[in-house]
Amino acid sequence: MKPFEIVEEPIDIQKYADYVLHPSAGAVTIFTGNVREWTHGVRTLYLSYEAYVPMAEKKLAEIGKEMEEKWPGIRVAIAHRIGELQISDIAVVIAVASPHRKSAYEANEYAIDRIKEVVPIWKKEIWEDGEEWIGSQKKYPESGVTQQ
């Protein structure tokens, strides 16, 4: 496995938990984003994820680096699955090991927020009566560093 990867197979959380654990770690947080059946009263049949794979892996690694700078002493692994995912399947896993629990929680939540902002991955929801690519529309930034 790579610590920051896009995968096509089911995600095994234990693998990422094992990777981040180290003797100075007193706390490990694992987050998984799973396919939810109901969203605002609409039933999802399944999801389809697509990624710009090399850039997505690069951005995941950058997020990991940001985290290790903000919370020294942590170790991070992130994987996102693409392709067709069924209800309850894991789309994303974030594993963080830290000396103390506060930073393990904070860093983990930071990671999922950043993934939803900058990593080129797209989700299509497929319902009984239609389908749609999801993504909140944001105007192209005119100046400054993009998407920081």
Partner: peptide, 28 residues
């Protein structure tokens, strides 16, 4: 994105660059 990095509107793309159109992302 040019060569896997986000860009600004005035950035210049040159022959040989690899560009990707990135619609609003929705991973996670």
């Amino acid at each position: 994105a040019v060569n896997e990095e986000y860009t600004l509107l005035d950035d210049i793309i040159q022959s040989g660059d690899v560009c990707a159109f990135i619609p609003p992302v929705s991973g996670g």
